[in-house]
Design a protein around this nucleic acid. Structure first.
Lengths: 165, 165
DNA sequence: GAGCAACTATAGCCGCAACAATATTCCCCG
DNA sequence: CGGGGAATATTGTTGCGGCTATAGTTGCTC
């Protein structure tokens, strides 16, 4: 029953993910970041103006809106982010990456890429990697986490509301 | 910078994993189980005597020993598990799956396998799946989460101490 | 323009899990 | 046999994050 190939398949996916996540977390910690904080920084840094409304930030990450409120609280306290009132909609506020935040991200990214290379992509022959990524993409497209989706997509640019002026 | 293929690769792995996890969690919930509880049940059910010492249970799962203490508390309260004193070592105690626990697992497993088939293995051509699993195995073996490892392994049987008698 | 539903961010409350501290038991070594 | 260090499980403490409630804002409808 438990040696069903499907169980094995899920086990491999889960363990590979868990192992990589642990490596990532360790490297993030060297730079004083948690995984969520790194995620926030990357999401914001790839957005126009290095900013995103709280709601959109939540939609693009693994956190709820209240979760975003709190992680932004912490990162603002640490000087990595800054809240900015949205001029066109007084309900909204932007989270903006500060210079310190960008700098921190710049310090962190090279090591992150190196770790991916070392423990993931570099472990596989090019053909294997290609097929593996195709397969993951098919699965991803099928399950479509919805809110979590979009990370590998081009760039939503203006997800719901225009930044206005 | 952010469209680096390595970033994309990790994104796919993370999103595929997140999407599948969400599907699993929803199905577990139909049977009144959380993902950790399901994990505990499967680990115990595949162990000799349907039991494992608290420490070994922690070593084989994603939880710390105190985490195991508490989830076993809850599951014992719900009648899925039972604590049993270890006769050969009075420091240790076993977590044993009850009949109700086994029954719950039997109710949950078919649907779980069906979901894996539906959203993961069944999404891929046999060749693709084979290569993908090989790749995941290579990555898994490389990162070797250590404690988390072993889920797809045969069976540790007696990880640290002999059950004795 | 007034009313109302939807949207946005936040705060209260709760459960979960990791870390550290603690109590008990075991085993090695003399 | 006795002492000390390791092992085992539990509990206290802490932080995180989801859900719900809430307050403020917007835009639609009449």
């Amino acid at each position: 029953m438990f040696d069903d190939p499907r169980i094995t398949a899920v086990g491999l996916l889960v363990e590979a993910h868990a192992g990589l996540s642990a490596r990532f977390a360790a490297q993030f910690e060297e730079h004083g970041l948690s995984p969520v904080e790194f995620e926030m920084l990357t999401r914001l840094a790839r957005s126009p103006g290095n900013q995103l409304r709280m709601t959109d930030l939540a939609a693009q990450t693994s956190l709820s809106t209240s979760g975003v409120t709190r992680v932004v609280d912490r990162m603002e306290r640490d000087g990595l982010l800054r809240r900015r009132a949205c001029p066109s909609d007084r309900r909204s506020s932007y989270a903006v990456v500060t210079a310190a935040g960008l700098e921190r991200l710049d310090q962190t990214l090279p090591g992150h890429l190196r770790i991916i290379e070392q423990w993931f992509t570099g472990q596989l022959a090019p053909d294997t990697l290609r097929v593996l990524l195709d397969g993951l993409r098919q699965v991803r497209d099928a399950v479509h986490p919805g809110a979590t989706a979009g990370s590998t997509e081009p760039n939503p640019a203006e997800p719901t509301a225009p930044p206005g002026g």
